[in-house]
């Protein structure tokens, strides 16, 4: 039985060399280059993808450790004809300049909205138990793993707030 990884609903075989990171697997083996490599050390978030719905840094994980897992990349969230609510909001609010960090930002924000639905607290949450209110501080803290060298942060926060409102409506 060869093990596979499901990426955006298609199965791919796991590479033979165990050194291949999940990030390099996605970009070079599967050919999905939306996911970006910024630092390759877990520091910038450009490589953020969803694995079984949870956001992780694909650069700090080996493809071989993901047999049977289901990965969603930016390509799996939507496309220009049919963008996700967050993708649309990023466009509307100019949530980027060069765009390099954007796939990671969008994947990260997609998972973040789910985490808030789950009621998971963050370092910025006043209480560990209460409902999470999506303040700018909450967004900034929860998105702190996604750096933007262009400094598009204010518009990223605005885009996320907007998409979240739509989500709730």
């Amino acid at each position: 039985m060869t093990e596979t990884i499901t990426v955006n609903e298609t199965e791919y075989p796991i590479p033979a060399d165990p050194r291949v990171s999940l990030l390099d697997f996605l970009r070079q083996h599967v050919g999905l280059t939306g996911t970006k490599k910024g630092c390759d050390h877990g520091q910038c978030g450009a490589c953020t993808v969803l694995v079984n719905g949870m956001r992780i840094n694909s650069c700090l994980s080996l493809a071989v450790m993901h047999g049977g897992d289901s990965v969603t990349t930016i390509e799996g969230l939507g496309n220009p004809e049919n963008p996700s609510a967050l993708q649309k909001a990023f466009v509307e609010h100019d949530g980027y300049q060069c765009g390099y960090c954007t796939p990671g930002q969008v994947c990260s924000a997609t998972a973040m909205l789910q985490e808030i639905d789950n009621g998971w607290p963050s370092d910025a949450s006043e209480s560990l138990e209460g409902e999470v209110e999506l303040t700018a501080d909450e967004i900034r803290e929860r998105m702190s793993g996604n750096l933007c060298r262009c400094g598009a942060y204010p518009n990223i926060v605005a885009a996320i707030r907007d998409a979240a409102k739509e989500d709730a409506a």
Partner: peptide, 21 residues
Amino acid sequence: RNYPVLARAILAGATQQLRNR
């Protein structure tokens, strides 16, 4: 509920992406 110091310490470290792994 019972060990908020632990929840707070974890949440003060790294990022959500890293803590998920």
